[in-house]
Amino acid sequence: MTSQTYTFRIQRNMPGQVGTVQSHWQEYKVEAEPNTTILTLLETIKGGQDGTLTFRQSCRSAICGSCAINIGGRTRLACKTHVGTVAKDGVVEISPQKNQPVLRDLAIDIRPFFARVHGIKPYLQEGPERAGKVTSTAYDQVNHVTQCIMCGCCYSECTMAEVNPKFIGPAALAKAFRFVSDPREGLKTERLQALANPNGIWSCTRCTLCVDVCPKEVAPMEAIVKLRTRGLNKGVNTSAGAKHALAFHEDIKQTGQLNEFTLMMRTLGIVGSLMETGMALHLAKKGKIPSPFPHSVTGVDELRRMYESLERSPIDVETKAKEAVPE
């Protein structure tokens, strides 16, 4: 492999007056082979060109979670990102994580992120739902989430966090799932109730960005989906999101077709639907009123039979394990 000159275009941030940060972009040139990591090159710049360049790092092996920064428009771990894969015409653009307050250059203030993690009570709790024995397959459900290193890549890219800083966020919710699905957790239902509150599991947009940016294959959104399922199974179904989800399977079971009129009614209730008129009026102007009486698809009885069959003898499709995980 041959080395070439790369330009690092780095967002520099200096704390200004209380709570403000002054930003500018600065360019550095480094010579490197395409498979050199971004972290190595940031160190080269800091050690040889500019000692003021500030970033966090520690383990160099994608396990401590320190070096998540925005590289080429995506939040990634600098220690496992090769310069050749992110450079565009030899230029690599680097800035701090998004959706987080910046302390200095590429270092963000990690406290708000961890405050959200603390908020989900990130520890096993004693309680009545604790199982006695741990089976060999007990962690098949939680293994992917225990790989989380709390680097914050997912939160930085989260489309809901971008517009709602109160959203608990993918990392903390994945951590919550780790406890809800641990056989030793004693307060699973209580957790599910708390997680169904506003800014919790039902606020995830399902945009799937967290799944793709996660450097540890945690798939936070999959954990959020499973939290929703567990919540509904435990009767935690009063939030708008939960009602919306329930409406779906009723519609499909009854008619095989999603009915957008009744969907709105069920999700928000009558009053809620009327509140929605802002949008409904806009739709109505264009003659876009969904029919309250959709036609059934052909063979809807098959759907009902499938549904009933699965109610009689459920299949665990959440894990690839051969047997269902007892909870």
Binding site: R56, C59, S61, I63, C64, S66, I110, F114
Partner: peptide
């Protein structure tokens, strides 16, 4: 931060 400690490696 505690989770960045090198024990993790």
């Amino acid at each position: 931060h505690p989770l960045r400690s090198h024990s993790c490696a």
